[in-house]
Simulated assay, not measured.
Amino acid sequence: MPAETRDLTGTVVLVTGAGAGIGAATTTLLLEAGANVVVADLDRDRADASVAGWPADRVLTHRVDVRSADDARDVVAAAVERFGRLDSVVCNAGIGAFGGILDHPDERLTAIVETNLLGTVWAVRAAVAHFDQRGGGGDVVVVASVAGLGTAGGNESVYASTKFGQVGLAVSLDRELRPRGVRVSTIAPAAVNTGFADGLGRTAGDPLKDTYLSPLDVGSAVVTVLRQPRRMRTALWSMWSMAEDA
């Protein structure tokens, strides 16, 4: 007998950082599963390009700076106006850089902290406010990193701190929101073959990237937790390439 799964057809999912990388892969897989997707990205043109060819009634692209609480509320409101509701939020937007604690300007480190951590807080707050308004239920998926599980190297301390923060936020939210029917899942991948940190510790086109996880690997995990029957939840899913030491 096949395992029971939820049908995502017609559900509405907001994905932040959805214009490229993990976010774009997740968006594609969600659309293939029948969901309607709100494609939120700092670059509206990139968001539009990521869903070119999909029916216009299945997608909504929206420029969002996740560091802005107002932008988070605006995109949730736009989702509700367009589709009538929001069922899930995937907090995927993130940036990073490799190097020592003194190797980057203040502005870059501030952007990493605000994008990765505050960007998650604002998206969750906006989504949960809607979940509560409609009577409860919903899903929050946080795309963090194994760097937030104690595996970070000595050249990513600020980035790792934001990922620890995301994991801590999600663990606490799981306890807070479960009585209201909201599931909170954390997906924590190791290295993924995207443009992450290119020019800031990684190199575009580096053959080593071919040994990393693919964005579709992570997107598949997101879809899997959303398709779980409502009686169960996945609190933490860590993922590694077979070529990378855990």
Rank of each mutant, 00 (worst) to 15 (best):
G148Y: 05
L102V: 15
G100C: 07
D57T: 11
S157E: 11
V121Q: 13
D57W: 05
F83K: 08
L42E: 09
L149A: 07
V124S: 10
I22W: 01
T16Y: 05
R58H: 13
L86A: 07
R134H: 00
H62T: 09
R134G: 06
G21Y: 01
T28W: 04
D70T: 13
A123W: 04
D43G: 11
C91H: 14
T61K: 01
G17D: 08
V128D: 04
A123P: 14
H104E: 13
A24C: 00
S145G: 05
D74W: 02
V76F: 02
G148K: 08
L149R: 12
D43E: 10
A77M: 12
T16A: 12
A49T: 06
S50L: 00
D139Q: 08
L117M: 13
L60N: 08
A144E: 02
R108T: 14
H130W: 10
S50A: 14
V142I: 15
G84E: 08
R134E: 03
E81T: 15
R58F: 02
A72K: 03
G21K: 02
I22M: 02
D71P: 12
R125N: 15
A160G: 12
S68V: 14
H62K: 07
A35F: 07
A123Y: 04
I101T: 14
A24F: 01
D48W: 00
D106R: 13
T16D: 10
T61P: 03
F131M: 00
R134S: 08
V146S: 03
T115A: 11
D41A: 09
S50C: 03
V128R: 01
A20G: 09
L118M: 15
V59W: 00
G53M: 04
E114Q: 15
E107P: 05
V141L: 04
A47R: 00
T27P: 04
G100K: 07
A24M: 01
P105G: 05
A144H: 03
D106W: 12
R58L: 10
P105H: 00
G135L: 00
A24S: 11
T120V: 14
V38N: 10
R63C: 07
Y159L: 06
G21H: 02
G135C: 00
A129M: 05
V64E: 08
G19M: 02
V64L: 13
A77F: 07
H104K: 14
A152G: 08
R125A: 14
L29V: 03
L31V: 06
F83S: 06
D71A: 09
S50V: 02
A123S: 15
G137I: 01
S68F: 11
R44T: 12
E156P: 08
A97E: 04
N116Q: 06
R67G: 15
D70I: 11
V38M: 08
R67Y: 09
L42K: 14
A35Y: 01
G21R: 02
D65S: 12
H130F: 04
A40K: 09
A52P: 02
R125C: 12
E81R: 14
D57Q: 12
L42Y: 13
V158C: 07
D103P: 11
P55V: 06
A24Q: 06
A49H: 04
H62W: 11
D74I: 07
A25H: 02
D139R: 07
A93E: 05
R46M: 09
R85I: 08
V75D: 02
L60M: 10
A35K: 02
G84D: 09
G53E: 01
I101V: 15
L117C: 12
L109G: 03
L102D: 14
A160M: 05
A78K: 07
S145R: 03
A18G: 03
N116G: 11
